[in-house]
Amino acid sequence: MKLTTRYRFSASHRLDSAELTPEENCRLYGKCNNPYGHGHDYILDVTLEGPVDEHGQVANRSALDALVRNTVIARLDHKYLNADLPEFASVVPTTENLISAIQGALERQWTLPARLVRLRIVETARNTFELEAPVR
């Protein structure tokens, strides 16, 4: 059985690679390279898979919510990813890199019996990113 729970966070970011010249960054990232950054209301869907336990659940909802809120949402919500998150000090906070960072953070803190099997980030209604994420 799989259980998917949705979370939200709002954050700003700027796409600018240190490996590229200002002109190349501007050409590559377009508006996403504007100097002061911009924000999104991100949606994060977390999918777990495992047997239904004796209480009729794949996972305890409170434990899952606490894990995701403490590990991910509290660190990202209402932040400027480039400046506020050390993992993006030298990594471009594209949503591809963001979803990998979230996967890593969740893996390090994971304590639930069910396995983390998928993460999905909806950056805007037009852009969605998905990562199959086996924890163990």
């Binding site: 059985m1 799989k2 259980l3 998917t4 949705r6």
Partner: peptide
């Protein structure tokens, strides 16, 4: 709810 669903494939 819109924020929580399960998938069951008969396992």
């Amino acid at each position: 709810t819109g924020d929580l669903y399960v998938d069951y494939g008969g396992e």
